[in-house]
């Protein structure tokens, strides 16, 4: 193998570190994207038996946005194995306990249950905020495109811009704004 071919081989199978900002993203849609990069499904060299998956570092997992009323309706089941050991935790309760768990479970459940799944999950690093250790941060060389735009809240706009925003009508003088 020539030196060029050898380097080509290294470059082909090099493990890339991707950054994904989960702020205001749907974790179940994001799981499909994250899973694709974790398993290496985005590479034309993909094979189930070859280790071609990348590392994904997810930040701001505390700010994920579940669709509809999923925070109240989605239930996570756990059983200790003992009689009466079943417990059901609502999504918002789980998120309060561990803000990385909802996203982690979404990615875990998006993959087929085989032996490889646990090792693939080891390549997923989730952080609740944007404080990422330096030794991890320096490996990152790519950022995954967020699936949807992060909306800007009304109270984050400057007051002047809100006041000067064009409006169709003025409220009547006796109208009480809640």
């Amino acid at each position: 193998m020539s030196a060029l071919k050898r380097v080509q081989q290294w470059a082909t199978f090099a493990r890339i570190w991707h950054l994904y900002d989960a702020a205001w993203q749907n974790p179940f849609d994001s799981a499909q994207v994250i899973k694709k990069h974790l398993m290496g499904l985005h590479k034309p060299i993909y094979h189930t038996m070859s280790q071609c998956g990348d590392v994904v570092v997810v930040i701001n997992s505390a700010d994920i946005a579940l669709p509809g009323d999923e925070w109240k309706k989605r239930v996570y089941f756990h059983h200790t194995g003992y009689p009466g050991g079943a417990s059901w935790t609502l999504a918002w309760e789980l998120h309060e306990k561990d803000p990385t768990m909802v996203l982690k479970k979404a990615v875990y459940n998006s993959m087929d249950g085989n032996i490889q799944r646990r090792y693939t999950m080891q390549r997923l690093l989730i952080f609740p905020d944007s404080n990422v250790p330096k030794d991890i941060l320096e490996n990152i060389s790519n950022q995954l495109r967020p699936l949807r735009k992060v909306p800007k809240r009304l109270d984050h706009y400057p007051e002047k811009e809100v006041k000067e925003f064009p409006k169709i009508i003025d409220y009547p003088k006796d109208y009480i704004v809640k």
């Binding site: 499904l41 985005h42 590479k43 034309p44 060299i45 993909y46 094979h47 189930t48």
Partner: peptide, 13 residues
Amino acid sequence: NLFETRVQAACEQ
């Protein structure tokens, strides 16, 4: 399935 996965990945690029 494998061929389709690979071609899909390349198409996406």
